[in-house]
Amino acid sequence: MRKLIGLILIFGFAFYMFTIVAAIVIPSDSSEKKSVGIDILQNSVRQTGAANAVTSIVVLYRGFDTLGEVTVLFLSALGIALLMKGGRSFKHKTEDESFILKTGSHLLFPFMFLFGIYIIAHGHLTPGGGFPGGVIIATGFFIVLMTSDVFKFRDYFLTIIEGFAGLSFIVLGIVGLFTPEKSFLVNFMNKGVFNTVFSAGIIPLIYAAIGIKVSSELSGAVGNLFVSKYGRRSENE
């Protein structure tokens, strides 16, 4: 019964979207589109000095949204840490993992780490930035965590790094309150030479802070999910 109502609602919605919205959205002549994004595009190189227009929007024009997004990630990491407390501490039997897996992960880890740092540092020149770079570094960490004993999961150390990276984001923003423009997250450094790594004002600094925060946060969250064991008593470890 519930399935039937659900199906009717969903297909009604889909039908409506296709007939009315599709008729407007698809054939619309978008070559002379006027929007805030196009205005930003025309001014972004002059105003920010970043080669990647999307990055300049994410960090400068809409930096407040990025602060909110960092907070959302922080909240879900806190929530996972809260919910996973109190399980039996689970020592993964890493002797069972195959030799290829262990050696491969050891070899892969430095490259992933370096690649992640490259993506974070060049966020204002190429697509990428703090978030994908942080995820790549975190993936490198937990491939090694899951297959061998080289890294022990140190929860508290990761929390300290994460907290200080987040605070440095906010401190960079508060510095903007003391500039002549008196608003949060102003781009107060000079714009540098276009298309090099040291350009675009505070964008590399903020992305570095975000990258460190995301990588430590995700490593902590996945470590929490992985190390504590919940399940019925009848399962064998």
């Binding site: 805030v36 930003i40 400068l60 024009y61 930096g63 903007g176 608003s183 997250l185 781009n187």
Partner: peptide, 8 residues
């Protein structure tokens, strides 16, 4: 915020 006037 961030020194850019709305709507930008």
């Amino acid at each position: 915020i961030a020194g850019y006037k709305p709507p930008v």
